[in-house]
Simulated assay, not measured.
Amino acid sequence: MQSQRKFTLSCLLAMGAVGVAACSVAPAPERIEDVGSNELVVAGPGVGVCNQSDPYEKNNKQATATGLNYSWIYFEPANPDYWWSVDTGGAYTGASASICKNDEDWYFVSTSNLPYAPGWLSIRAKAAGASHCPMQVYEEDGETWTSGYDPPAGPENTIQIDVYSAGTLQLVASAQSNIGRIFLDTYNGPLDQDLYLRVHGPKEAHYGYELSVAVQTDAFEDECES
């Protein structure tokens, strides 16, 4: 059961974010929309054009954070017949949005009402056209090919995610990437007391992004391990 759980959660993260009430995922990959703001048209991997700075977006402050609903929750309680048995659980949520011109997005993730005690937080972010797993270059029989995509390093493709305890605003974890891809995994902090996520970048930050969040009882294998 444990190996099955690891596989299922890894696949969910690898699939990317799902739509939630405050966000919209466009049907074609070349178009990404953030509801309440102007459309972000992606001309190619890592290339985007924002008409203006999301004047109608409402979640750019902690007080107006977008609540993310779980699309999937799994829980298997410990078997009392076996002393080594432990609770096993995981929950998944995510969003698709954009960052343009000094913009930032705040999200609220409820962890206090899960049917298990959270012990591990996994966050994945793909921005500016980045693939879920890092780009790799392969060579065989004189031929070279690549798998995945890494946007060019730079402030325009830099994304940062800060995680705060909702009750105390204590910083639980933080990660930054200048190539649009974040893998943030942590045991740190009071993960069972609800969380705020802040997605932002430098003033040049300019991209559409997908956010995936898994709250689990324990860690699981890196889905990009070969």
Rank of each mutant, 00 (worst) to 15 (best):
S3T: 10
Q4F: 10
R5T: 03
R5E: 12
K6Y: 09
K6P: 00
K6N: 06
F7E: 07
T8P: 00
L9V: 13
S10A: 15
S10E: 11
C11I: 02
L12V: 04
L12H: 08
A14Q: 15
A14E: 11
M15A: 14
G16F: 07
A17G: 15
A17L: 02
V18L: 09
G19A: 15
G19T: 07
G19K: 13
V20M: 01
A21C: 00
A21Q: 06
A22T: 14
C23N: 11
C23Y: 05
C23F: 03
C23V: 01
C23S: 11
V25D: 06
A26E: 11
A26P: 02
P27A: 09
P27K: 10
A28W: 14
A28L: 12
P29R: 13
E30H: 14
E30S: 13
R31G: 01
R31Q: 06
I32S: 14
I32A: 12
I32T: 14
E33M: 09
E33W: 11
D34R: 14
D34E: 09
D34K: 14
D34N: 09
G36R: 13
G36F: 04
G36A: 06
S37G: 15
N38V: 02
E39V: 08
E39C: 03
L40E: 05
L40A: 10
V41G: 02
V41M: 05
V42I: 08
V42M: 07
V42H: 00
V42F: 00
A43V: 00
G44V: 01
G44D: 08
G44A: 13
G44H: 00
P45F: 01
P45M: 01
P45Q: 03
G46N: 05
G46I: 04
G46W: 05
V47L: 05
G48W: 07
G48R: 06
G48F: 02
V49S: 04
V49E: 05
C50S: 05
C50V: 00
N51M: 05
Q52D: 15
S53H: 04
S53K: 10
D54A: 10
D54K: 13
D54R: 14
P55H: 13
P55K: 09
P55Y: 06
P55I: 09
P55F: 07
Y56K: 13
Y56L: 15
E57I: 03
K58I: 07
K58W: 08
N59Y: 07
N59I: 03
N60R: 08
N60E: 04
K61N: 10
K61M: 11
K61Q: 15
K61Y: 06
Q62D: 03
Q62G: 00
T64W: 03
T64K: 06
A65Y: 12
A65T: 14
A65F: 10
T66H: 13
T66Y: 15
T66N: 12
G67I: 14
G67M: 12
L68Q: 09
N69L: 11
N69Y: 09
N69V: 11
Y70Q: 05
Y70L: 04
Y70S: 06
S71Y: 02
W72E: 05
W72H: 14
W72S: 15
I73C: 01
I73K: 01
